[in-house]
């Protein structure tokens, strides 16, 4: 049973870091700090050379992580180490190619064995999910469905197939801090909830406690990536306590 099952019993804060930025040892500290500060789920980014769904902040983190030799194998080792210390649900965020090249069977087996609960692959839409969903299911990994402001008539189909939680994309474009989220967000979340009992978390552009509180008034959780990665970019090896404080504040607000 996926650890995601009970992650949304109360409003959930979901934090993201890129693995290997600035080092895998520090990523381990950051993830534990987020869990201790109250994060319900932690997303770990597998760095990719060409992250086309990311804004500049996370793109730079990907480059930093790759430049110090971060690899898929080393990330699975990190997850194993984390699993001796925490039971916080862990979700990988990666692109199709690193998963495909590793081999779907081998990748999801490694996810299952190391203790990964879910996976987000922005460039695998509903139509292409079929080639990996059997492997994911076999090893107990939830493939998270993304729903966008432009999903329209696709929402019902996407929501029905959702596992773990629904990732509702709150802005057009790429990841990154924004002052305003999509106008039809509340309506989209409402529509998803008429179709599925799977929890709905909102992300892409959220950074401030006020925004998190706002979306958690109607959604089950808020996802924050770029704002945390910015802290890592600013403080590097010294970022742990800054992340802990930021996550505690965010959890408080929702």
């Amino acid at each position: 049973m996926s650890r995601l099952k009970n992650a949304f019993d109360k409003k959930a804060f979901i934090g993201f870091v890129t693995a290997g930025d600035p080092s895998l040892e520090k990523t381990e500290e950051f993830v534990l700090a987020m869990a201790e500060a109250g994060a319900a789920v932690v997303e770990i980014g597998v760095p990719f050379s060409d992250p086309v769904a990311e804004g500049e902040v996370i793109e730079r983190a990907n480059i930093r992580a790759l430049s110090v030799g971060t690899t898929t194998d080393k990330i699975f080792d990190l997850v194993k180490r984390l699993r001796t210390k925490t039971e916080v649900p862990l979700v990988l965020l990666t692109y199709a190619n690193p998963v495909f090249i590793y081999g779907y069977g081998r990748f999801f087996k490694a996810c299952g064995e190391s203790g990964i609960d879910g996976i987000i692959i922005p460039d695998i839409p509903f139509e292409e999910k079929g080639e990996l969903s059997d492997y994911a299911e076999k090893y107990g990994v939830d493939v998270i469905s993304l729903i966008a402001p432009t999903s329209g008539d696709r929402i019902e189909k996407l929501a029905r197939s959702a596992k773990g939680f629904v990732y509702c994309v709150s802005s057009m474009g790429v990841t990154g801090v924004r002052s305003a989220l999509a106008e039809n967000l509340k309506e989209i979340v409402g529509k998803i909830k008429t179709v599925t009992a799977t929890p709905v978390a909102v992300g892409f552009g959220i950074s401030a406690p006020k925004q998190a509180a706002e979306v958690c008034a109607y959604a089950d959780g808020a996802i924050v990536g770029s704002a945390i990665v910015k802290i890592v970019e600013q403080y590097g090896d010294e970022a742990t306590e800054h992340i802990r404080r930021y996550v505690a504040d965010m959890c408080e607000s929702i």
Partner: peptide, 13 residues
């Protein structure tokens, strides 16, 4: 081939 793109672009494509 295929359509390996973010959900945001699916309806447009």
């Amino acid at each position: 081939g295929g359509q390996y793109i973010p959900e945001t672009l699916m309806n447009t494509v």
